[in-house]
Amino acid sequence: MPKYFLSVCYGLILLFLSSTALTAESVTKPFAQHRVVLQISDPDPFKQTLVLNVAGNLIKHYGPDAVDVEIVAFGPGLRLLLKDNSNVERIDQLANDSGVRFSACENTISAFTKLLDEEPELNPHATHVSAGVVRIIDLTNQGYTLIKP
């Protein structure tokens, strides 16, 4: 009986830990009814404004708790997440007030490092992901809708 009880406890603990890990990794808004991943990979600076506008308007329309938004930046689009980008105030606002997440592609960071001879400083809200495109695939597999403005 104690052995059976311990096994059940271990099982419950593992189940709890695994669900917590999943939550921390991708489901940070448990009550979100819509989950959206926005792709920014374009060199056009206008796309930076556009992707932030789209994120802001999704939040505005559905409400911050009802929509989960993650912006994944890779390729030339990674400039959006450089530390001194001119949109830094809007990024701060979206991250702090609305819980929008920002992911930065490590492959692109490596490429930028070679071009600049130093690693670029990123916005503190940016989370490193091994590859931007892989992150997008993972999120879409979890039910996120991919939008590339």
Partner: peptide, 24 residues
């Protein structure tokens, strides 16, 4: 919102004419 935000520039002539928005 996109169209309106797309018009944005710095208002300061020194900065508007002499610099570009950082990172974009």
């Amino acid at each position: 919102t996109t169209l309106l935000a797309g018009q944005a520039h710095s208002a300061n002539w020194l900065m508007l004419q002499g610099t570009e928005p950082v990172g974009s």
